[in-house]
Amino acid sequence: MSLGTFTHSDALSIGVELELQIVSRHNYDLMPCAPDLLRLLEGRKLPGAVTPEITESMIELSTGICSGYADALAQLGEIHEALVEAARKLDVGLAGGGTHAFQHWAHQRIFDKPRFLQLSDLYGYLSKQFTVFGQHVHLGCPDADTALYTLHCISRFIPHFIALSASSPFVQGEDTGFHSARLNSVFAFPLSGRAPMVLTWQDFEKYFGKMMATGVVQSMKDFYWDIRPKPEYGTIEVRVMDTPLTILKAARIAAYIQTLGRWIQTERPFEPCEDDYLVYTFNRFQACRFGFDGNFVDPATREHRTLREDILRTLMRLEPHAIELSADGALRELLADVGGRGNDAQWLREAHTRERHLPEVVRQQSARWMSPMP
């Protein structure tokens, strides 16, 4: 089976997907209300879509094609308003965050959809443990080879995206010590990790054909890579982010990815090679475990610096591209996070230090997500 043609898309267009927690407003545990939420939203015209996820305590929103930060934020805002209205009718809460702080995986229900039931049969209890919540960003590429070049160049910034979005310090009632514990659940899947080092679509089709021949995969959906090409959309999809606590943060991270994409596609600053991945899993782990204070090894120079230093250095380098995309304001807000305000994992830990009660932490993070946009 061939992957087919890489669909044309507008270069540097973006799309944002967010997986959300559905929580009870009584005890703030997860609540299996996705079918009811979807029924309330049936027929409502939205700029994107709201769809089920693998368990009934999750829901996913996705924008349409966005030209940039302002467009993405506007679309997210409209979908956010519709979701909050539906949730209030059901007397449930919605929340960001990469993990729920104290839910137990065994209590989750698989959503009644053929693909989800198939995954449950294949992966067993891992499917319910996959009740974790992420942000995905699609980046438009003018052609297939540019998509693969962009994918491998942007892979060196995966630790940036993890540290900026990290919002999953708690798992099943315990502080894990990680900024992003969510990605530990993703690691368990056999087809997670990184894409193979191929730089032409012809070579990628050969790789995909070999994987098809093994019977292990049937489509690109079977790969849980950190970044994967999506030929049917003409994009690459960045998949490592935790769902932020606000749609403002989600839109800012999407703007960062778009700005990096513009720099990479216009200046072509790197020559990707297999050796770039020598430090990939080390850098990725450091971001998950320590956030901005993690150690980052430059894949080209082997220089060591903190992730904070590398993100700040990159944001400064991107300023002209951010201005061209009208994303400079969004990136300045990320700069403030890195420079001292901290990420969402820090916010959650500070809330727990104050309250000493995880249901109250979830109540506050739900209130934060459901509040009107400023």
Results as ranks from 00 to 15, higher is better:
R363C: 05
Q258K: 04
H160Y: 12
Y207D: 13
R363Y: 06
S165P: 04
I59A: 06
H160M: 07
D203H: 14
L37V: 03
E60N: 15
P196N: 10
I323E: 12
W369Q: 02
E355C: 09
P32K: 03
Y28S: 04
I14W: 05
Q118L: 13
M212P: 11
E360V: 10
P190F: 00
G261C: 00
A49R: 04
T243R: 10
H104P: 01
L37W: 06
E237C: 09
P169S: 00
L148Q: 09
R363G: 01
E174K: 15
F292T: 06
R268S: 11
L117W: 12
V137G: 03
Y69A: 13
V198H: 13
L315R: 02
F296L: 11
E237T: 11
L358D: 09
G96A: 12
L117D: 13
F223G: 02
Y149K: 02
H357G: 04
A322P: 01
E333Y: 06
V92G: 03
V84A: 08
H80V: 01
I154N: 02
I22N: 08
L122W: 12
Y233I: 00
P52V: 07
M58P: 00
A254H: 09
W369L: 15
L30W: 14
R289K: 15
I79D: 02
S185P: 07
W225S: 15
A255V: 14
L148M: 00
K249C: 08
P372I: 02
A287N: 08
L278W: 13
G340T: 10
L245D: 04
G64V: 04
R156C: 03
W201S: 12
S155C: 10
P52T: 08
R88D: 15
G294F: 14
H357I: 14
T51I: 10
Y28L: 02
R88H: 15
L151M: 13
V279M: 07
D10P: 08
V217L: 05
A188D: 11
S185T: 15
L20N: 11
N343D: 11
Y256V: 01
R354H: 15
D10M: 14
L41W: 00
M220G: 09
A351L: 15
V297H: 00
